[in-house]
Computed example of a mutant assay.
Amino acid sequence: SDIDVSQTEDWSSPRRKFQIGSITSRALWLLEITAVVGLIYLGYDLWQAREVINKEVKEVISADVYPTLSPTPIIKALVLPGGHVPPTDPGGTRPNDSEIPENLRPLVQALPAVIIPTPSARQATRIVIPAIQVDAPIVQGDGWEQLRRGVGQHIGTASPGQNGNLVLSAHNDIFGEIFKNLDMLLPGDTVTISTMGEQFTYVIKGTEIVEPTEVSVMDPTTTPSLTLISCYPYLIDNKRIVVFGELQKS
């Protein structure tokens, strides 16, 4: 049963080398074909995506409407805006830093100044509340300096008429006492917010007295909403009065 070496296949023979080379060439050819097909498919997929985007843009432009944006504040407030020491304090009125939890004060002091948005046609410019004789300008931002000049819109909250929570603050016993009589508003009273070219009317739904740290009242909403905030009570200023409204249905 000796093995006949002469019958063993010679792997180094030219014929065998040709067969191996042929198999390798076919495998490489199949890989190249697969890669080309993959590139063609990817290119077609990208082309389709581009066409869809272009179609959506054309539809928005032709309809002359703009998508509703959902503003997001850069950082969540730690206390509600408008806090200050009462004007009857021996040291005079000033921001009430004691409202900020002590362990968070270093964080607040280290925060950069809030960037005020550049003016736009959608920004609120004026507020009128007939029931309490309010007619005042609206400025962007609700810090100490902004509230010297009128009613301040909390940065990042909704524009008038848009889905979301439009948050406005003003003082009750300093800087014109603009929101002195918020506690006199009743459900059904109206608030008109103007922009550069439009007016939006909100209807009052209710009022709450909350702690200065109850920042959840400024949370975004899914419908066009209005939140008015001021210190409370008059000349004591250790709470906040919060008035809620909804956009009047046409």
Rank of each mutant, 00 (worst) to 15 (best):
S62C: 06
D64Q: 13
V65P: 02
L69Q: 08
S70V: 03
P71H: 05
P71G: 01
T72N: 03
P73F: 05
P73A: 06
L78R: 09
L78W: 11
V79D: 08
P81W: 08
P81C: 05
G82K: 00
P87L: 06
T88P: 08
G91M: 11
R94M: 09
N96M: 15
D97F: 13
S98H: 13
S98L: 14
I100S: 05
I100V: 12
I100Y: 12
P101R: 07
N103G: 06
L104V: 09
L104S: 11
V108P: 13
A110K: 13
P112Q: 10
A113E: 15
V114C: 00
T118V: 11
P119Y: 01
S120L: 02
A121H: 10
Q123F: 07
Q123T: 02
Q123D: 11
T125P: 06
T125I: 11
V128R: 02
V134W: 03
A136P: 01
Q140S: 12
D142F: 04
G143S: 12
W144I: 06
H154T: 11
I155R: 06
G156R: 07
T157L: 04
T157H: 01
T157K: 00
S159V: 00
P160S: 02
N163D: 03
L166K: 07
L168P: 02
A170R: 07
I178Y: 06
F179R: 12
L182A: 09
D183K: 10
M184Q: 15
L186I: 15
P187Y: 09
P187E: 08
P187A: 03
D189S: 13
D189Q: 13
T190H: 08
V191M: 04
T192S: 03
T192N: 04
